[in-house]
Design a protein around this nucleic acid. Structure first.
Lengths: 218, 218
DNA sequence: ACACAAATTATTCAAGCGTATAATAACGGC
DNA sequence: GCCGTTATTATACGCTTGAATAATTTGTGT
């Protein structure tokens, strides 16, 4: 009861705030973390920098994530999911869906330097952190399986009955091609014209597959 | 003179050491830095961890590098140089030199998870640190120019007179292919057999170039 | 209106960071 | 064999980090 002394210090006012829904706060924190990683690098993406960018104070992070490590893992999961879902074209012919997949991964908003920076920062930690390795590995398999199925349907639509293992090898090759050109574009965009890398990818893919591959078919 | 008080503390003995040549100390520090980056990640590669691994104490780093940043830059330069010089085959036919270049970049000691980790850790900082960006950019151009020249000689040896820009596009495509497959091997070596990726790269490259490309020619 | 649960802020703490400085050991020239 | 140079160690400093805790504001159900 009367045991509290009201010192002058207690008169200092606090910053006002509002209570946001759990989901949106978590999303804001994850997005802010990715922003910081892209602009400042993984080492400089500290809780004290991330939190204000999400519009909250540093202490709140621990209310939504058990540790900073968990926030980083959530950010990696969110990032990989947003990267993987872009190339997905639900309809159209096998040819156009394959072409769309290749093109989507070599243009905005997938292929840019921001995404390369984030991706590389995480990949540089994959060997260190098994949790990040798992996230990476699952995203990679998803990506390659999607591509392999697109290739199988594409070849089937051209009347080809590919021998065992051929689709796999084609998927590995074109996956490599996409990844490598994605890197080139993100790391040195100024060296290429807007559509150059996408064109190169399409013409290379059709040589590898031995079938014409146009972006305009449906 | 007699103004020094010999307290008991001064009797404690120091660790013995030996004076190493400048060049080898610098090399040891750079190598230790790369080891730490590969095994612990860039953020955990601190002076206090790097120095003991190089066989010295933390304070010595500043005697050889003006700052930690300079050590990291030296490490990046050393790493990129060692990666680039491997594919170089000074003699042989154009075909065998091109094949050797492709194969060398997809086998040990170039293609492994350690190198991927180091490379990715640095790439994740390229946007942040202009000095690292410069190092990266120069190594990239060296790599692609080497490849473009190998391709030009290879096509010329087959009697082709490639149209303007064709060699450039071929170099971009095969560069992407090599980079992407190098990544795949380093990140998920267990998914591929020993020579699988190298074989895929060779057969894809000869389809892209429209000429047979064997590893056994000279 | 009001009380209660919990979301949010503010503050504190120990640990680790890069750097600076002073003491010391090692080595080459004489 | 000593002496001076300097490579090397040891220690200290100020700062930042992730985390823990205490204090306070907010919204919701009644």
């Amino acid at each position: 009861m009367s045991h509290q002394t009201h010192s002058p210090a207690e008169l200092t006012s606090r910053r006002s705030f509002h209570r946001a829904p759990q989901a949106s706060r978590r999303r804001d924190l994850v997005d802010a973390a990715l922003d910081c990683i892209a602009e400042l690098g993984l080492s400089a993406a500290t809780i004290r920098v991330i939190a204000p960018r999400a519009g909250v104070t540093a202490g709140l992070v621990r209310h939504y994530f058990a540790s900073k490590e968990m926030l980083i893992q959530a950010a990696y999961r969110s990032f990989m999911a947003s990267m993987t879902e872009r190339g997905f074209a639900p309809q159209g012919s096998a040819e156009s869906r394959l072409a769309h997949f290749i093109l989507a991964n070599l243009q905005e908003p997938v292929a840019n330097s921001r995404n390369i920076s984030i991706w590389a920062a995480f990949v540089g930690q994959v060997r260190v952190d098994p949790a990040l390795a798992l996230i990476h590995h699952e995203a990679y398999l998803t990506f390659r399986d999607t591509l392999e199925e697109l290739i199988a349907e594409f070849l089937a639509a051209h009347g080809e009955k590919p021998e065992r293992g051929a689709c796999r090898r084609h998927a590995i090759a074109i996956n490599g091609l996409i990844d490598g050109l994605w890197l080139e574009r993100g790391l040195a965009a100024h060296l290429f014209s807007e559509t150059e890398l996408a064109d190169i990818a399409l013409s290379s893919a059709e040589k590898i597959l031995g079938q014409p591959l146009s972006r305009h078919t449906n």
